[in-house]
Structure formats: structure tokens, C-alpha cells
């Protein structure tokens, strides 16, 4: 198992916390930023997974073999960066399309939530009706 230094652990914690906080917001723009920050966090984590040799380039002839950084996490992080970059672009386009179509960038409630709210309103109305009837009967 590799160890991680404390500063990096705190940075990672901060990135993940901020990312998930933003992800839970109502505005699409913030959700998008949340995804971006989470992506940075995950990529940094991949880098750190290589261990404490980080910073020494994994090049033959440049660095002694025993002391070079592990190249595999770097390759993985590179791939992941490209993928997150492409998907962020797609998400931006989608958010722009949503804004074009809907005129705002709020995330709306889903179908079930809307149905529950409608039922709630109907029930409340029905309750009021019965109360009014009971009231009128009591006064009669």
C-alpha cells in the first residue's frame, strides 16, 4: 500500500466536498462546476495512487529505475482527463440547449415529485372543503 501526504489528503477532501456540494445545487451551472471539480479530485487521486515517488519523470535514462514515478497512474490520469474534458464540453452544450429551450437553468422536479405535489394540493383542498362543511354544520 502507498502512503499519501497530509496536504494532498486535505486537498482531495476539499475537492470532493466542494464537488458534491455543488452537485446538489438547483442551478445547472453549479451542477456542472461540481462535476468539473469532482473530476479534478478524481484525477488528482489517480496521480497520488502512484505513491511517494511522484515528481520524478518516468523516463528511461533520465531517472534511475528504482526511483522513477510509477507511469501507469499517469497514463490512467491522462486518459481520464481527456474523457472528463470531452464530457464537460458535451454537458456545457446540453446545458446551453436546456437554457435555450426552457429559458432558465434551474433543474426541475421529476415526474413523481410533481405528481406527489399535485396530490398533496388536492388532498389539502379536500381537507379544507370538509372542514368548511363541518364548520357550517356546527354553526347551523
Amino acid at each position: 500500500m502507498n502512503t499519501v501526504n497530509l496536504t494532498m489528503a486535505i486537498v482531495l477532501g476539499g475537492l470532493y466536498a466542494t464537488g458534491f456540494y455543488l452537485l446538489l445545487q438547483r442551478s445547472l451551472m453549479r451542477v456542472l462546476l461540481g462535476i468539473v471539480i469532482l473530476g479534478h479530485g478524481a484525477n488528482l487521486l489517480l496521480q497520488l495512487a502512484g505513491g511517494s515517488q511522484a515528481g520524478r519523470p518516468p523516463m528511461l535514462g533520465d531517472t534511475p529505475i528504482g526511483r522513477m514515478a510509477d507511469p501507469l497512474p499517469q497514463a490512467m490520469a491522462l486518459t481520464a482527463i481527456v474523457i472528463t474534458f470531452a464530457l464537460t464540453t458535451f454537458l456545457l452544450a446540453l446545458a446551453y440547449r436546456a437554457w435555450q429551450l426552457l429559458g432558465h437553468d434551474e433543474v426541475q422536479d421529476d415526474v413523481e415529485d410533481r405528481r406527489i405535489r399535485r396530490l398533496e394540493a388536492e388532498l389539502a383542498e379536500a381537507d379544507e372543503d370538509t372542514e368548511r362543511e363541518l364548520d357550517s354544520e356546527a354553526t347551523r
Binding site: 464537488g19 479530485g41 478524481a42 495512487a49 433543474v107
Partner: peptide
């Protein structure tokens, strides 16, 4: 558009968790 947005964001979040998992697995096992 709303449904598509939800789908995309949920899948992306789970992908980020996937990456996190890979990082942790690699840190633990190499």
C-alpha cells in the same frame, strides 16, 4: 431535455466515483 440532463449528470457522477474507486484500488494493490 430535463430527463436527458438528469441521466447525463447521474451517469457522470457515477463515473467520477468509478475513477475514485480505481485510484483507491491502485493505491492499495498496485
Amino acid at each position: 431535455v430535463r430527463a436527458g440532463m438528469t441521466y447525463t449528470i447521474v451517469s457522470l457522477s457515477s463515473s467520477v466515483l468509478f475513477l475514485t474507486m480505481i485510484g483507491l484500488v491502485y493505491a492499495a494493490t498496485g
